[in-house]
């Protein structure tokens, strides 16, 4: 295991695939980085339509959760 090995949470399938390839339960930093970037791209692509934040804030105020 290289010195820069870090552990990050990965989706299960990916985690196990990487784990099997590396033969360890830790993932090297460069793999983690690549996976993180890929996930961020997927997430951005899958982002839902904008939530109506003004409406949410109005309800939170009305219920006393926000001043």
């Amino acid at each position: 295991m290289p010195d820069d090995a870090i552990m990050i949470p990965l989706p299960g399938a990916l985690y196990r695939r990487v784990e099997a390839a590396a033969g360890a339960d830790e993932v090297p930093a460069y793999v983690a980085r690549a996976v993180r970037e890929a996930l961020a791209r997927d997430e951005a692509a899958a982002a839902p339509g904008a939530v109506d934040e003004a409406q949410i804030v109005e309800r939170l105020r009305r219920l006393g959760y926000l001043d």
Binding site: V51, E53, I56, V57, R59, L60, L63, Y65, L66
Partner: peptide, 16 residues
């Protein structure tokens, strides 16, 4: 209802 927040609402609340 007064205590019922959706995840979209708690996420805005925590951020604010």
């Amino acid at each position: 209802e007064r205590y019922h927040l959706s995840p979209a609402e708690t996420r805005v609340l925590f951020r604010l």
